Structure formats: C-alpha cells, structure tokens
Amino acid sequence: MPPLATLMITLGITMGTLMTISANHWLTAWLGLELNMISIIPIIAKQKHLRSTEAATKYFLTQATASALMLFASTLNAWQTGSWDITQLNNMISSILMTSALMMKMGAAPAHFWLPEVLQGSTMTTALLITTWQKIAPITLLYMISNHIQSNITLLAGLLSISIGGWGGMNQTQLRKMMAYSSIAHLGWTLTVISTAPNIALLNIIIYMMMSTPFFLSLTTTTSKTLQTMTTSWSYSPTTTIILTLLLLSMAGLPPMTGFTPKLLILNNLTTYKLNTMALTIALLSLLSLTFYLRTSYLLASTAPPTTTQSTMLWRLKPHHNQITAILTPIALFNITILPALLM
C-alpha cells in the first residue's frame, strides 16, 4: 500500500474514533463511525485473495446496516423529544434500536455472525485492530447512554454472548476465530453490567484490550495462525511462548491474573442488585471459554523441553523478532500482574 494511502487511512481511523467519542450530537457520532468504517475496509481487503474480499464485504454490509439503524433510532428520538443530544435518549423504542445497532457494530450476540468470518479473512494485525480499536467508539456511546439502556435487553444479550462465545470457541483450531469468539464472550461480560455499573463495564473492556493486544502481537511475530503452528513457537522463542501461556490464563479469568479482576467486580455487582441467578449462570457459562483457553495453554506448555513437538517446523522467523519480544514482555507482564496491585 502506498505511504500516502496508509497515512490517509490511519488518519481516517483515528479521527473517526476521536470524533465519535468526543461528540455530543448523534449526527456527529454517526459521521465518525462512518469515517471509521470507510477507512478500515481497504485494510481488510488489501490482501489479494477472495477470502479478504469476502471479509471486507461482510464487514461493510453489517456496519452499514448498523449505521442505518443507528441513524433511524437517533432521528426517531429527535422527532419524539426534540433533542439530538446523545445523553438525552429518552424514547424507549429509540433506546432499544440504538442498543441493538451498537451491539451489531461491536459484534455482540445475537448479531455476532460477522465477526469470526471477518477476522478469519484478515491478517493478525487487522484482527487486532477490529477487536480493540474498532470497539472503542461503540463502547463509548453505550457508556454515554447507559442511563437509558433497557437492562433486560443487555442482560439477555450478555448471557447470549457469553454462551455463544464459549460454545463457538471450543471447536476452533484457527487462532483468529478463537479470538473472535473470545471477544464475543468478553463483550457479554461487559453488556451484563453496562446499565447498572458502566464504569465496571468500561474497565472490563479496557483490560481485555490490554490483554489481547500483546497476544495478537505475539502471534504476529511468530506468524502462528493455527494451534498446530503455535506448538512450534517454543523452539525458537521460549519467551514469547511463556507470554502467550500467561496471557491465555489471564484471559480465562484465573486468579491471580489480571483477567480475574473485572469478572470478580461484575459478579459482585450482579449480586448487589439481587441478580444471583444471573451471576451464577454467567459464572458457569464462563467455564466454556475456560475450556479452550486451558486447551491452548496446555498445548503450549506440553511442547516445552524436554518434550519434543511432533509438528513440522516452518521457515517464518522475522529479522527483528528478539527486539519485538523485548518490547512485548514488559507490556504482557504488566497485564498479568495488575491484580495483586488492585487488591492491596
């Protein structure tokens, strides 16, 4: 891609997100989301094969549908209340439609169908961008309208997202699809408390982004795309293998890792509001996600010396692999060891 085109696309993605999160008018927020969507489509489709074209088309159609629904909801709210202010979403139908549109933009269930396919047709760097940066704007809008969100809808969507994210990731051998279902499951945890404790929901998604960023970057440096190719990473990068194992355990939510912190806060909040059945249900459903996290961690740990791997080694070392690993190590360790600091 030419440098000028790369610069324009980067500016479009950055400015679109910043425009949305700083807006107080629905049309400005919609415009920022549209700019963001148009800018990332060339990044998804830059690979010259049919899978990337299919992924870009699915992403465009889904995001355009969600944008149209969002524009309709904001127009209906302005028609009923006379206000285009984001924090004044007082019409109930508009609130339901807007919540549905934002969940579709993020990839939460039941509008999750596009996320695994789009990530599978993209590169690891693009998948990282979709699962982290592209969720900032919709999450911010949900945070801003959290006082007007119907809690029954978000609880149901969160329950569906956690269950679908767990079931979908169990039979995956492709790492990008597995991380897509992991993203859906973590969005479910966020949605369960977005209407009662938006600050905890925001903390949950921020911690997930902090964990998934070094994970995707580590996969990029080792060019691992499947579970089989991931098992050979110890042979040429033991540090990266250890980082990946600890990050997987952290994303699974095992104490004393960082990923346990938001789950503990969310369960505590649900029990505070007398939603004990809901808290018990999502805690049990999280065991589904724990299954494929532990399976991947076991595959990484079982290939450590003196055990020999049965997978074929591939020529895929990168020239600056050691430098990138040296940068990722402190970032990953910070994500892993933040929980003891929070509990002190």
Rank of each mutant, 00 (worst) to 15 (best):
residue 287 L to H: 07
residue 141 L to V: 15
residue 164 I to L: 10
residue 88 Q to C: 06
residue 52 S to C: 00
residue 258 T to H: 03
residue 77 N to Y: 08
residue 111 A to M: 15
residue 9 I to K: 11
residue 229 T to A: 07
residue 140 T to F: 10
residue 261 T to G: 04
residue 50 L to P: 00
residue 116 P to F: 02
residue 197 A to Y: 01
residue 209 M to L: 01
residue 192 T to Q: 04
residue 239 T to Q: 03
residue 64 A to F: 06
residue 315 W to G: 10
residue 307 T to C: 07
residue 22 S to G: 15
residue 122 S to M: 08
residue 65 T to I: 13
residue 291 T to G: 12
residue 327 I to N: 01
residue 216 F to Y: 13
residue 123 T to D: 00
residue 180 A to S: 14
residue 292 F to E: 10
residue 34 E to V: 01
residue 90 N to D: 15
residue 266 I to P: 05
residue 247 L to G: 15
residue 135 K to G: 03
residue 90 N to L: 11
residue 31 L to I: 14
residue 201 A to C: 10
residue 25 H to F: 09
residue 337 T to V: 06
residue 341 A to V: 15
residue 179 M to Q: 07
residue 90 N to I: 08
residue 218 S to T: 13
residue 242 I to P: 01
residue 18 L to N: 11
residue 329 T to N: 01
residue 93 I to P: 05
residue 335 N to E: 04
residue 225 K to W: 02
residue 145 I to Q: 11
residue 200 I to C: 08
residue 254 L to F: 14
residue 123 T to E: 01
residue 138 P to H: 09
residue 157 A to W: 07
residue 234 W to M: 06
residue 217 L to V: 12
residue 14 T to V: 14
residue 275 L to T: 01
residue 33 L to Q: 10
residue 231 T to F: 00
residue 120 Q to K: 08
residue 327 I to S: 02
residue 85 D to A: 07
residue 195 S to D: 09
residue 279 A to D: 00
residue 263 K to I: 12
residue 277 T to F: 05
residue 1 M to C: 13
residue 77 N to D: 14
residue 318 K to E: 15
residue 37 M to A: 12
residue 257 M to K: 08
residue 22 S to D: 09
residue 93 I to V: 15
residue 3 P to V: 13
residue 220 T to D: 10
residue 161 S to Q: 05
residue 288 L to A: 10
residue 67 S to A: 13
residue 214 P to S: 03
residue 153 I to A: 09
residue 217 L to Q: 09
residue 52 S to V: 00
residue 233 S to R: 05
